[in-house]
């Protein structure tokens, strides 16, 4: 691996009920790079992503063991406030889930709950993040319309702005473009490439083309195990494992 590791996962095992979902997963996610987690559906890639900000806590039948270090802090065994850990990661889900509020408040919400309530500051910050995702010009005259009145592509960009508003240093994206039209997908992908100068980006995808376009580091998962991982250039041009080779050839999906 080149560069510094932002997230360090050691021997992560995860069960949902009796099902073994993640099997002894160990990997390092490099800082300020785009890491792509690839694999067929049901291989555990979304679960791996969610365990990074402990959304797995929500479900009582989920059991996690192992260690996840984020900048040296083991987030699975820490006294740190879980909301503080989560704030450091912006989450972008498969389909956009705007909050049931207007466009402005969708971005302002995260700022408000972390104590920034000054109106002028809020306005500036909201504008800043909406500009960052190229949405400002489209919505500046309708900030008080409900977020659900936006198109799906706009909603997804709004969700990205919302995730960035709490000033995370990691962005977790779970198949962020799978519900989007090609043009919105392109905007989101380009945004990720712009953002990696400041953020560590982890993207789950099952689109090989997308992975090739954006990945700096690639992780290939199959049935809960990491089969192969490495810098994207090596991973795509010279895969070592048979399973990876056939996946990259498109023999299964």
């Amino acid at each position: 691996m080149t560069g510094k590791a932002k997230i360090n996962i050691e021997h992560l095992d995860l069960y949902i009920g009796k099902q073994h979902i993640l099997k002894d997963v160990s990997t390092q996610i490099p800082e300020k790079k785009i890491t792509v987690i690839l694999g067929p559906s049901g291989c555990g890639k979304t679960t791996l992503l969610k365990s990074l900000n402990r959304l797995t806590d929500l479900y009582s039948n989920v059991k996690v063991s192992g260690k996840i270090f984020i900048e040296g802090e083991d987030i699975l065994h820490t006294n740190m406030d879980i909301t503080e850990i989560r704030k450091r990661m912006g989450l972008l889900s498969q389909r956009p889930y705007p909050l049931p509020m207007n466009i402005f408040n969708n971005v302002a919400y995260g700022l408000r709950i972390s104590g920034r309530t000054n109106k002028i500051v809020l306005r500036k910050r909201v504008q800043h993040y909406l500009e960052l995702v190229n949405l400002w010009d489209e919505v500046k005259d309708r900030l008080h319309d409900p977020a659900s009145s936006l198109s799906i592509g706009q909603q997804q960009r709004l969700c990205l702005a919302r995730g960035l508003s709490v000033d995370p240093d990691i962005i977790l994206a779970d198949e962020p473009t799978s519900a989007l039209d090609p043009i919105s997908s392109e905007v989101v992908e380009k945004k990720f490439i712009d953002l990696k100068s400041q953020y560590t980006v982890v993207v789950v995808t099952h689109s090989l083309q997308q992975a090739r376009r954006i990945a700096d580091y690639a992780i290939f998962m199959y049935l809960g195990e990491i089969i192969e991982q490495g810098p994207a250039s090596e991973f795509f041009s010279d895969p070592k494992e048979e399973l990876t080779k056939s996946y990259l050839k498109g023999l299964f999906n």
Partner: peptide
């Protein structure tokens, strides 16, 4: 459930999720 997940990842507590998002 994703709505709960995204709100939590903004740094909200479970009670904030209920009060600000789910009830609305």
């Amino acid at each position: 459930e994703e709505l709960t997940e995204v709100t939590l990842s903004l740094g909200a507590t479970h009670w904030m999720v209920i009060k600000h998002v789910l009830l609305r």
